[in-house]
Design a protein around this nucleic acid. Structure first.
Lengths: 184, 184
DNA sequence: TCATTTATGAAACGACTGTGTCATGAACTA
DNA sequence: TAGTTCATGACACAGTCGTTTCATAAATGA
C-alpha cells in the first residue's frame, strides 16, 4: 500500500464543479471549459469521476444536498400558520441566493421529461423530487397530500413565470392571492 | 426571371421539421439526423432557412401557431363558469395530443431562463408567452390579472408535475382542489 | 533503495458539429 | 435554343466532443 488516495482533491473538484454548473447551467456543459475553469484537466475529471455522466450525477446530488441544507438552516416554519408557511417558503425561494439552484433544477426537471431513464434508479425517481424536503415539511403541517401537491405546483409555476418574465411584483401578488385562498 | 421559387418545398420541410422536433425535442437537435429523417440534406435545410438558429425559430413559431389553432378550434369556454373554464382548459391541455407541444414549450421556457437574449426581439419577449392565448381568454372572462397569473402558473406547475412524475390522478385531484378554491 | 500505487501531462482517436464551396442539375422566359 | 435563376448533391473545413493510450512523476511502506 503506497501513496494513499487523495480524497480531498476529488471532493474539492466536485465542490468547484458544482459552483460552475450552478452559474453556467447544464445545457452546454463541456469538460474542457469546465476543467480549465477549475484549474485541472479533462484527464483528471475523468480519472476522478469515471465519465461525464457520473460527474453530472454527483454534481446534481451535491447541489440538492446544498439546497436542502440551506433550507433546513434558514427556514423554520414550525410556529407559522398554513398561509404564513407558504409565504415564508416563497420569500425564501425567491431570494437571490436560491436562484441558481432553482434554475438548475428546472433544467433537470425538463430534461427528465425528455429522458426519463436518465433520472431513475431501478425505476424510482431520483433527482426529480427536489423540493421534496419542502413537500414533506408542508405536509407535516396541516396539509392533506392533494393540497400539498397543489401548493408545490403553484410555487413551481410561479417561479417559472418569475424567472422567465422578470416581473417579480406580478408573481408576488399572485402568490399573495394564493395564500389568501388557502388560508384556514 | 426563370424557374420560380418553390415555396411548397420549403413550407413542407418546415412542417415535417416541426413534427420531428415535437417528437424528438430541441435539446440535442442536429441538422444531419434531422435532414435524413426528412429525406433531404443539411445543404437544403441551410439553403431554405439560412442557419440552424433561424430554422429553430421558424419551427417554434409553427408549433406555437398549431397549438393556438388547436385551442381555438377545440375549446369554447364562452358559456362556462370560471371554475369550469379552468377545468376545461386543464382537461384539454392534459389530453395526449397536446403533450408534445407542452413538452417542447417547457424546454423553450427553461432554455429562455439560461439564454434570455435568444428569445427576445428588440427587448420584448417572443416565444416565452405561449399559453398567452390562454391567458387572454381567461382574462376576458371574469378574472383580474393577478388571478390570471395565478391560474396559468398553477396549471403550468401541475403540468410539470404530471409530466415528470407520471401520476395523473394526483395532479387531477390537485387541479380539482384549485378550481374549488377559485370558484365564484 | 526499491517496489507499488496514485497522480497527471501530452497527445491522439474517432465521431460529430454547423457551415461554406464548387459543381452541375433542372425549370423556366425570351 | 440561349440565358437565367433556382435546386441540390458531394465534399471539405475548422471546430468541439467525450474518452483512451502512453508515458512519467510523486508519494508512500517495506
Amino acid at each position: 500500500m503506497a501513496r494513499p488516495v487523495d480524497r480531498h482533491r476529488r471532493s474539492q473538484t466536485l465542490a468547484r464543479a458544482t459552483d460552475y454548473v450552478l452559474t453556467h447551467g447544464l445545457a452546454d456543459l463541456s469538460l474542457r471549459p469546465l476543467a480549465s475553469a477549475l484549474d485541472t484537466s479533462t484527464r483528471m475529471l475523468l480519472y476522478d469521476f469515471g465519465s461525464k455522466e457520473r460527474l453530472i450525477s454527483e454534481i446534481l446530488a451535491e447541489a440538492r444536498r446544498r439546497l436542502a441544507e440551506l433550507y433546513a438552516t434558514n427556514l423554520d416554519t414550525g410556529a407559522l400558520s398554513r398561509s404564513d408557511t407558504v409565504h415564508a417558503i416563497w420569500t425564501w425561494l425567491t431570494a437571490p441566493g436560491q436562484a441558481p439552484y432553482l434554475r438548475l433544477f428546472f433544467q433537470v426537471h425538463v430534461d427528465a421529461m425528455a429522458r426519463p431513464d436518465a433520472y431513475t434508479d431501478s425505476g424510482r425517481p431520483l433527482i426529480t423530487d427536489w423540493l421534496g424536503f419542502l413537500g414533506s415539511d408542508v405536509r407535516a403541517d396541516r396539509l392533506d397530500p392533494t393540497t400539498a401537491t397543489l401548493v408545490i405546483a403553484t410555487i413551481r409555476g410561479l417561479l417559472l413565470d418569475r424567472f422567465t418574465t422578470n416581473d417579480p411584483a406580478r408573481t408576488d401578488q399572485a402568490l399573495a392571492r394564493f395564500t389568501q385562498l388557502i388560508s384556514d
